[in-house]
Nucleic acid binder design. Structure first.
Lengths: 117, 117
DNA sequence: AGAAATACTTAGTGTCGCTATGTACCGCCC
DNA sequence: GGGCGGTACATAGCGACACTAAGTATTTCT
């Protein structure tokens, strides 16, 4: 039985767009010098937002690839004590700059939406 | 000379996704019984958000068509004193319900993003 | 050996905002 | 009466991206 996406599902997908990339930057940013690996990002996103910003792997890894291509993240590899080699991400200088700019934009949008109400 | 979209442009496009449809609902919601026509929505969105949520017509009208198809908006026509016939939009019962649900979701996302920082 | 958790990858799909263009009606002014 | 600017709506084509779904690979525990 194929699950047809409900209208509400659609809204949630759309609203998440863009926000997710910002959320990833935010999580990486909290792990300043040490960095954090993809799987860990997924875990934090889920746990620290009570499941609201949970991401599937097929969503997260493309985001990480993009952010790396844009030079917002650097990657290094690291052996894991349980599982295959990890890719550990840290913010670049640009990444930190963009993250802070986006914070301003998002706050501003939220403020304007309140004005509209 | 073709203008290649910058990285920052890309972010703004993504972050607006979904938000715009909510913003349209918000504007229509403020004009409860009287309703408001498309062009007026565009004007309000631009003026009341200091240009931040300005929409081009090619963006707005598809949104209105979608919202109508989803039965969140009703339409009636109305003669204009300057220009062609207007389509005046009002929220349906469903529209009002979805608008309020989305308000909760958006506030919640904003709150969770602050937790992530 | 098999299961389970960890960890990353990628192909295919649908949606949506944007650009660009087209259509059409009105009032004003020379 | 013809042009112009503002009003008002419609749509084709495009690129970006989250999602679904499936696959690969490594380690630990039983």
């Amino acid at each position: 039985m194929k699950k047809t996406p409900s209208f509400e599902d659609g809204w949630k997908v759309e609203i998440r767009r863009g926000i997710l990339q910002y959320a990833v930057l935010a999580v990486v940013s909290r792990h300043k010098e040490d960095g954090i690996h993809g799987y860990g990002i997924a875990r934090e996103l889920k746990e620290r937002t009570d499941g609201l910003l949970e991401v599937k792997e097929g969503t997260l890894y493309p985001i990480l690839h993009r952010l790396r291509k844009e030079r917002l993240l650097n990657v290094r590899t690291e052996k894991s004590d349980a599982g295959p080699v990890r890719k550990v991400y840290v913010l670049t200088g640009d990444g930190d700059r963009v993250y802070r700019e986006l914070t301003v934009i998002l706050d501003s949008i939220h403020e304007k939406l309140e004005v509209l109400r």
